[in-house]
Simulated scan of single mutants.
Amino acid sequence: MVNPFALNWLWRGFKGNSVTFALLFACLVLGWSVTGSLWFFLRNLGVHWIFALVIPGLFFSWLAKREEKWLPDEAVRKRWARGLIIVSLALALLIAWVKQ
């Protein structure tokens, strides 16, 4: 099943220059669902399932809003976000090619 947020993460990372969402997209393309792992972790801690679904979204939104503080230069954020997306797509294609 395809993550319905993947295109949103791609758009926010590539066009919106968000390193957080570019990293989420890169992890998804490479086969690691960060949000799924966080959900699993929260469920093992005993957090109710509805909160385990909501908390990752709130956390990543909060993290994306704080990007300007820990990476203030917009050109650097743009370069990092686009680089993460392009490298992850190239790496995913390389992995698929090697597996053939």
Rank of each mutant, 00 (worst) to 15 (best):
H48K: 00
A52M: 05
L91A: 15
L63C: 04
N8E: 04
W62T: 13
K65Q: 10
V76G: 06
S33Q: 07
L94V: 14
W39S: 04
E67F: 09
G36D: 06
A64Q: 05
L91W: 13
V29Q: 07
V19W: 02
L63R: 02
L10C: 00
N17L: 01
A64D: 13
L28Q: 10
W32L: 11
G46L: 06
G16A: 10
L30K: 08
M1L: 00
F5N: 09
R82K: 12
A6G: 03
V54S: 14
A26T: 01
R77T: 01
G31R: 05
R82N: 15
G83R: 06
K69E: 14
L94H: 11
K99R: 15
S33Y: 01
L63Y: 09
S18T: 03
L24Q: 04
A96P: 00
W97A: 15
A96N: 12
E74I: 11
C27G: 15
W62F: 13
W70C: 05
F51S: 13
V54F: 15
A96T: 13
L38Q: 07
P56F: 07
K78S: 10
T35E: 12
S37P: 00
I85E: 04
S33W: 05
A96R: 15
L28P: 00
V19T: 09
K69G: 12
L28S: 03
W80H: 08
A22Q: 07
C27M: 14
A96L: 15
E67W: 07
L23T: 13
K78P: 02
A90K: 00
V34N: 04
K69P: 00
F5T: 02
K78A: 11
W97F: 11
A75C: 05
L42Y: 00
V2W: 07
W49Y: 15
W49G: 01
I95K: 07
S18Y: 05
R79C: 01
F41A: 13
V76H: 10
L24E: 05
L24V: 09
W49V: 12
V19Q: 02
R82Y: 05
L63W: 08
F14E: 06
F51W: 15
I85T: 02
W9D: 05
V47C: 07
P4A: 04
F51E: 11
V34P: 01
K78L: 03
G46Q: 05
A52R: 05
L38H: 06
I50S: 14
V76P: 00
Q100S: 14
L58T: 08
A6C: 07
L53P: 01
R66P: 01
P4Y: 10
V54P: 04
K99G: 03
W32M: 09
I85A: 03
A6H: 10
R82Q: 14
W70K: 06
E67C: 13
K15Q: 03
F14A: 11
